[in-house]
């Protein structure tokens, strides 16, 4: 295994010990549980999460300052939620000194860039107390999800209970108990274009990052990455927030995570390179070289 999983201090399979959280969480309820713990312990004053928005399954980023609010944001919404847009306001009219934020790998990149290069984020860098990353292969515009669910899966958005991407399929579960699966082949054209230059699968820059891949259903794979993440994760474990299993004792394990990460990075690396010769003697921009 190379650099595709980023730096980490520990990797485990885990799930929350709180049944209430697990009822509606996407996987092992890692995000909601860890924020809830951090909130109760005063490690964070609030967290930026993606809650329900104006339309079904359209996320609305907001600042949760209570466990109830965290609970309302459980579950994955497979379309864009600009969580980072709140990072400064959280420290302003909300008065937060210790901000939690959850986001995709690119959003973790945004947070870290903002800490090292704060162009417009005055007085934010030292207030990011817990950044939780979620694994991400790709994301979708809202309209894409609508078309996938309504056209391809033939389900109305109102009746969706959960969506998931896993085991090579896009899953739609309805409130009435039905399950529809679509091959990932059909989802590709709907992906957000910006995802095709993304070189991070497992949120390498988060304090703690998590996703379903690598762990059994209902469990999550967790990477503990920074000193800060290690500290908080350690305390949460000690407080009995999580059940854990060593990652080398679960199936399908880290190997699958590595495989998917490499697949994503290699594919997108090619896209990035292809952009250099996209036109006739004209390149598309490469943000990894210069602005």
């Amino acid at each position: 295994m190379g650099t595709e999983l980023g730096k980490y201090k520990a990797c485990v399979s885990a799930r929350s010990t709180n049944k209430e959280i697990l009822k509606r969480s996407q996987d092992g309820g890692i995000v909601t549980q860890l924020f809830a713990y951090a909130l109760e312990e005063g490690i964070i004053d609030g967290a930026i999460v993606a809650g329900p928005g104006d339309e079904p399954y359209r996320p609305r980023p907001f600042i949760a300052t209570t466990v109830d609010e965290l609970m309302s944001a459980r579950g994955t919404r497979y379309n864009i939620s600009p969580n980072v847009s709140w990072i400064k306001e959280a420290t302003r009219s909300y008065g937060l000194d210790k901000v939690g934020i959850v986001g995709t790998p690119c959003q973790m990149q945004a947070v870290r860039k903002g800490q090292l290069y704060p162009f417009g984020w005055r007085d934010v860098d030292d207030k990011i107390a817990l950044a939780i990353g979620i694994f991400c292969m790709e994301n979708f515009p809202y309209q894409s999800i609508k078309q996938l669910v309504e056209d391809h899966a033939g389900v109305s958005m109102q009746s969706v209970k959960k969506m998931d991407i896993g085991k090579g399929k896009f899953w739609v579960y309805t409130e009435r108990g039905a399950t529809v699966q679509l091959p990932l082949k059909v989802t590709h054209k709907y992906e957000q274009p910006g995802c095709h230059v993304c070189l991070d699968y497992v949120a390498n820059l988060a304090d703690v990052s998590t996703g379903s891949v690598g762990s059994p259903d209902g469990w999550s794979t967790v990477f503990v990455r920074t000193k800060n993440g290690d500290d908080i994760w350690g305390k949460a474990i000690a407080a009995g927030c999580f059940e854990t299993k060593p990652i080398d004792q679960v199936k399908p394990g880290l190997e699958l995570v590595s495989k998917l990460a490499n697949e994503k990075i290699n594919k997108n690396q090619k896209t990035v390179e292809g952009r250099a010769t996209f036109g006739v003697d004209k390149a598309l921009r490469n943000p990894y070289i210069k602005p």
Binding site: T65, R92, Y94, G95, L96, R122, D123
Partner: peptide, 25 residues
């Protein structure tokens, strides 16, 4: 910065009042 959104040029005040109210915190 808290009431005004920015410490130097405040962003929160606008014609008609303010964009955001301050929370109790």
């Amino acid at each position: 910065e808290i009431a005004g959104g920015e410490a130097v040029h405040p962003s929160n005040p606008r014609v008609g009042g303010l964009y955001k109210a301050c929370t109790p915190r």
